[in-house]
Simulated assay, not measured.
Amino acid sequence: MVHVKEYYVATSLEDAHQRLKENPKNALLGGGTWMKYTHRILNQLIDLSKLGLSAIEEDEKQITIGALTTLRDMEVHQSIKALGDGFLSQALGSIMGVNFRHIATIGGSIFSKFSFSDILTPLLTLNVSVKLYPDEIKPLEAFLEDKGDRTKILTHLIIEKQEGHGYFKKVAQVINDFCVVNVAIFKEKETKIAVGGRPQRAKLTTEAIKLIKDSKTFDEVLFTKVAQQGVQELRFGEDDRGSESYRKLLAETYIARGLKEVYSKWWYPFI
């Protein structure tokens, strides 16, 4: 459990930023859903709830989501549901129960970089950036790989509107549990494949996608080869939810199935 010496409501982003720099044991409050399971002693817990970071805004090119937007608000938003045949909304809906998703925030979910995350996996297959206070916009993939400056504040998630088809699959022992593995695929002009819960953090395949780019025939033989290559290039492990070999089998199976589903929806001249 987290033990907090002082709770503080920030008056501005600059105020919060300065307090983060003052003491490494100062931290931001997201939805607070994992505080009970985190063992830390904090000097100051900084609340950003008065700073207007819970809105979803959009224009013709992108969707901008405030860091304190709840997972549930994202899940039911019409523009989110329209992305990739609803695969992003589906992934959000697979996270715990509705009550949990009414509390958990997208900023906390991304900034924490959880290895069991069900939302990072589909987000990686889209063109997504994060906005960091005071002065940086960074692609999501780069943000996840970067240890970064913990005093920077994630204020917004920026999702480019895309017309492609998506696929998401989560495998768990029981409903509302953490994933054993999850797979996301998105195809627009190019195809992206991500696998999470291995039990490492979600990651895109790179070598597997080259097989698709170099192929002129798109069938189950190709999809099986791509799935095998994807599993080969990613690192898998084991924990109490599943063995390494079981996770590899699941990932290979659902990458192949996902590719078949996504490509079956795509108009042939664009394949």
Rank of each mutant, 00 (worst) to 15 (best):
V2K: 03
V4F: 03
V4K: 09
Y7W: 07
V9T: 09
L13A: 10
A16K: 01
L20Y: 02
K21R: 15
L29V: 05
G30Q: 00
G32C: 05
M35Y: 03
Y37K: 12
Y37R: 11
T38Q: 08
R40Q: 15
L42R: 13
L42M: 12
Q44W: 03
D47W: 10
S49G: 03
K50H: 14
G52E: 12
G52H: 12
T64I: 15
A67N: 03
L68W: 05
L71R: 05
L71G: 00
M74L: 15
E75S: 00
H77T: 00
Q78M: 00
L83H: 01
L83W: 05
L88M: 06
S89R: 00
S89K: 03
A91V: 00
M96W: 06
G97L: 13
V98R: 09
F100S: 09
G107D: 10
F114P: 00
D118E: 13
T125C: 14
N127Y: 09
V128I: 13
K138W: 06
L140D: 07
A142D: 12
L144Q: 04
D149R: 13
T151H: 11
T151F: 10
I153G: 08
L154I: 15
E160V: 11
G164L: 10
H165R: 10
G166L: 01
Y167K: 07
Y167Q: 02
K169M: 04
K169G: 02
K170V: 04
I175K: 14
N176H: 15
D177P: 01
F178Q: 06
N182S: 12
A184T: 01
T191M: 02
T191D: 02
G196Y: 00
R198E: 06
Q200K: 05
K203A: 10
L204C: 09
I209L: 14
K213H: 12
T217F: 11
F218V: 07
D219W: 06
E220N: 10
K225W: 04
A227L: 06
Q229E: 08
V231Y: 07
F236H: 03
G237D: 11
E238S: 13
D239G: 03
G242K: 02
Y246V: 03
L250H: 04
T253A: 12
T253V: 09
R257S: 09
G258K: 04
K260Y: 09
S264P: 11
W267F: 12
F270M: 15
